[in-house]
Design a protein around this nucleic acid. Structure first.
Lengths: 125, 125
DNA sequence: CTGAATCCCTTAGGATACTG
DNA sequence: CAGTATCCTAAGGGATTCAG
């Protein structure tokens, strides 16, 4: 089915929006390649179902690639595609903006807390 | 209530995610200031209710400011705050990435169409 | 170990009508 | 003109169980 957007921004947002997608992209950016279980352990609270769903969507959008090894027990590895790596700058600036914004809002009385599992993402690429 | 994020990216995403928010930010970026009705006409299909909701959230997040003129009939003007203007770079790179991504995906057989109501947003800032 | 199948619930967004 | 109040639905996530 044809997807239509009024703004290119909406397309980008579509790709990276998802409760765990930014985290997944950051982790994959830092570790090059990760198995399903490793990823799951890095995302406390995520369920198996949701994890695979988020990964499928990222794969569908061409930013993550999935490699299946025909072994027993099963072994599946995920990594960023070139397309996925090209998101780096955007994720970094979003991370920076978020940190600055949190500071300002907190000074203005808001209560925002950021754990920063990855300050700007992709450190070790 | 205290908001907690694992990644600063999620906070930024929280601020700009919303069906009409990117469009609103772009339009406000280009026109400096817009009345409710002008904005509504620039967003074909949006309902009054949703428009005010999106605007309230953007205001709540400190990226948009709302100015009420005590006139009859009512007159309300919206504009970006300094905080909102600081989103410019991010929105532009997201727009660029989206356009490039659409091209590549279309060459790969996908069907993505972008009208580009604003190619990179904020042209006239 | 990885993932599919169910079932459920919350919420963003839409349609519509009404008010100052 | 700008905004609120209701009502409704579609979809993203979550919990749990089963399967190769």
């Amino acid at each position: 089915m044809k997807k239509i957007y009024d703004f290119a921004i909406d397309l980008t947002l579509d790709v990276i929006s998802g409760k765990w997608k930014p985290a997944i992209l950051c982790h994959l950016g830092e570790h090059k390649t990760l198995r399903t279980g490793e990823l799951r352990r890095m995302l406390p609270g995520i369920s198996q179902r949701v994890l695979t769903k988020q990964l499928r969507e990222l794969e569908e959008d061409g930013v993550v690639s999935r490699q299946v090894f025909g072994e027993v027990p099963p072994r599946v590895e995920y990594s960023l595609t070139e397309e996925g790596r090209s998101l780096r700058e955007i994720l970094i600036s979003m991370s920076d903006w978020g940190n600055r914004h949190a500071q300002r809002e907190n000074q203005a009385g808001q209560e925002i807390e950021i754990h920063n599992g990855s300050k700007s993402g992709f450190e070790k690429m």
